[in-house]
């Protein structure tokens, strides 16, 4: 098992390297970080030159890349190209914010999704099952940003109007009230609610369907029939035999999804102006700040790779038929 893990990690390193080269190339070819400066008529050409030299932009592409790479692997992520903020600081802050949103939405979705899926399977073809299925279909088909906009309209406009509220129940933008200091839990929750719901809804649709299908397969399995034939109590049959097996595919999928949270919230954060990794990414793609963009990509990839590995390990732990050499 240990060798398996090491081998996987080793293979990932070249992947990360290749990805960084690709991203750098695209950015280098398509964005000129000095553009903002260049078009400013009050800055002389000589100054522009100096600016570019300071940022190291007058070197060749590969030279810039390897200079960056050299620093990167030593852990020196340096500063943003445009401001004096440290790259690691910016990314860390954004990551924390994204994780707060992501983990909240994810947890809600997992708990609800699994529950709904199990009930739908045990009461197959019932009204509940029908509603759950329809709901999942709609949730999977609805454009997430549209859904988010509707929520914003609802909470930010209609409810305020109809209920004559001073403030919306749940806020529609940002992570905290502008200008606030300190940590106010209630305020945070009111800001977190809507984006978390938007995230959760998509995941619930997937998890409930997975759980339902998995549970149905297990409910019709031979070993469940054997368990009943043994005279085991129905509750234990469902939990100890049914769910124990049905949860396996979900667990691995959930682990994979967790890995995707780092970089997967771009649209949600854009709509709700949540200052997370997604917002950071959009910003640096606009201005070409590869000092941030490259570590960003590497970090999100690393997340995905590590959690995919976790998923595989979990699978082996949960299912004794799978054991890696």
């Amino acid at each position: 098992m240990l060798r398996f893990i090491l081998r996987r990690l080793l293979i990932s390193v070249p992947l990360l390297f290749v990805a960084s080269v690709l991203v750098f190339t695209v950015l280098h070819l398509t964005i000129d970080p000095a553009a903002g400066v260049r078009v400013n008529p009050r800055i002389s050409a000589a100054d522009v030159q100096r600016y570019r030299h300071d940022l190291g932009l007058d070197r060749s592409g590969p030279a810039q890349y390897f200079a960056w790479l050299g620093n990167f692997v030593q852990g020196k992520w340096g500063h943003s190209l445009f401001s004096s903020t440290s790259v690691s600081g910016e990314i860390r802050e954004a990551l924390v914010n994204s994780m707060v949103l992501g983990v909240t939405g994810f947890t809600i979705a997992l708990l609800l999704g699994v529950t709904i899926g199990v009930i739908a399977a045990v009461r197959q073809y019932s009204v509940f099952d029908y509603l759950a299925t329809s709901g999942a279909f709609v949730a999977l088909s609805i454009p997430v940003f549209w859904f988010a906009l509707i929520l914003q309209l609802l909470f930010g406009l209609y409810l305020v109007r109809w209920l004559h509220l001073e403030q919306p129940i749940f806020y529609t933008a940002g992570m905290v009230q502008p200008g606030s200091v300190g940590f106010d839990l209630l305020d945070r929750v009111r800001h977190l609610a809507l984006p978390a719901v938007v995230l959760a809804v998509q995941l619930i649709a997937v998890y409930s369907r997975y759980m339902r299908a998995s549970m149905l397969e297990v409910l019709n399995s031979d070993y469940l029939r054997t368990a009943r034939a043994k005279g085991v109590r129905e509750r234990r049959v469902i939990v100890h035999h049914g769910m124990r097996n049905a949860l396996i595919p979900i667990t691995t999928q959930a682990a994979i999804d967790l890995g995707g949270l780092a970089g997967g919230l771009i649209a949600t954060e854009a709509i709700f102006q949540w200052p997370g990794m997604g917002a950071l990414f959009v910003r640096v793609m606009d201005n070409g700040d590869y000092a941030i963009a490259l570590p960003w990509v590497m970090l999100t990839m690393a997340f995905v790779i590590v959690f995919n590995l976790v998923a595989d390990i979990l699978y082996a732990v949960l299912d004794p038929r799978i054991r890696y050499a």
Partner: peptide, 14 residues
């Protein structure tokens, strides 16, 4: 008590 035809699928694999 009852025993079934296919012992591979009739026993819980986990």
């Amino acid at each position: 008590a009852m025993i079934f035809q296919d012992p591979l699928t009739a026993l819980n694999p986990v």
